[in-house]
Design a protein around this nucleic acid. Structure first.
Lengths: 128, 128
DNA sequence: TTAGGTGCAAAACCTTTGCACACAG
DNA sequence: CTGTGTGCAAAGGTTTTGCACCTAA
C-alpha cells in the first residue's frame, strides 16, 4: 500500500462518484456500476473509496442509518454539507461562523486537536 | 409500546449510563452489566437504550466507527457535545448561534424539515 | 518480475427481530 | 388477567478479510 496504482476499477469509481450530485453509499455505487455492465466487485468499491478518501478526493460521512456515505470532492478545503434525506442531493455550505464557534467552544473547555462533525439533513425543494 | 413499564433491567441500564462520564456503546454497557453479575441480555440493552432515547433521558450519536454511542442526559432541551476522542468524556455545549445558522442556511437553499448533526471531537485536558 | 490490486465468498461486526416465557400494572 | 418486556438465538445489514489470481509499473 506504499504506492497507489491506477486501475480502471478505481477510475470507474471516481467516474461514478463524479456523476452523482449527492452522497451515495458504497453499495449504491456498486449497483450502478454493475448496472452499467461493469464487473467490478463490491469489495473493490469499498477499497477504492477508502483510497479516494485517503487521497482527499472524496468526502465520507456516517449517515444515521449506519451506512457510510461518500461524495466526490475536488476542493480540498474544509467545508460542510446540507443533505437531502430523500434523494441525497448535497449542497456545500460555507461555515466560517460555525468554524470559529467550534474552535472557541473547544478551547474554552480545554480541548485540543479539534475536529468537528457538522452536517445538516433536510428535505430539499424537489423532494417536497 | 403504548405504556412504558419500569423494569429492573431498564433501571440497570439507566444506572450503568449514569455511572459513565462519556459516551458508551450498547455493547460496552452490556459487558459492564454482565461483569457486575447482571443477567441482562444484549437485546434488552438495545431496547432499553432505544426507549431511553425516546423518553429523552439519553442522547445518541453515531460514531465514525459505525457504532451508536449513548449518554445519560437529564436535560431534555436540544443541545450538542464536545467529546474527547480518547476517553469519551463529553461536555454539553450550548449552541444557540449555530442552531440559528443551521436553520437559516437550510432555508436559504430551500430545505425543510431540518435536522442537524453537530458534534465536536477533540482531546480533553486530562488526556493530553 | 513483483508488489499492489482484484473478485469472490466467508467472516466479522453491530443491530434488529421472532418466539416463547416472565412479569408489571 | 393482559399486553409489554425479556432472553436467547437467528436473521439482517454493512463492511472487512483471506486467498488465489491478475496486472500495472
Amino acid at each position: 500500500m506504499v504506492v497507489k496504482r491506477n486501475t480502471w476499477q478505481r477510475e470507474a469509481v471516481r467516474a461514478a462518484m463524479a456523476a452523482e450530485t449527492g452522497f451515495v453509499s458504497a453499495q449504491q455505487l456498486h449497483d450502478r456500476l454493475r448496472a452499467e455492465g461493469s464487473t467490478i466487485g463490491l469489495a473493490t468499491v469499498y477499497r477504492s473509496l477508502a483510497t479516494l478518501v485517503e487521497l482527499g478526493e472524496a468526502d465520507m460521512l456516517n449517515s444515521p442509518e449506519g451506512e457510510n456515505l461518500f461524495r466526490f470532492c475536488s476542493t480540498d478545503h474544509h467545508h460542510h454539507h446540507l443533505i437531502c434525506r430523500k434523494c441525497g442531493a448535497a449542497v456545500e455550505i460555507a461555515a466560517a461562523p460555525v468554524e470559529r464557534w467550534a474552535q472557541e467552544e473547544a478551547k474554552r473547555h480545554g480541548y485540543s486537536d479539534v475536529k468537528h462533525v457538522i452536517d445538516i439533513f433536510g428535505i430539499c425543494a424537489k423532494c417536497r
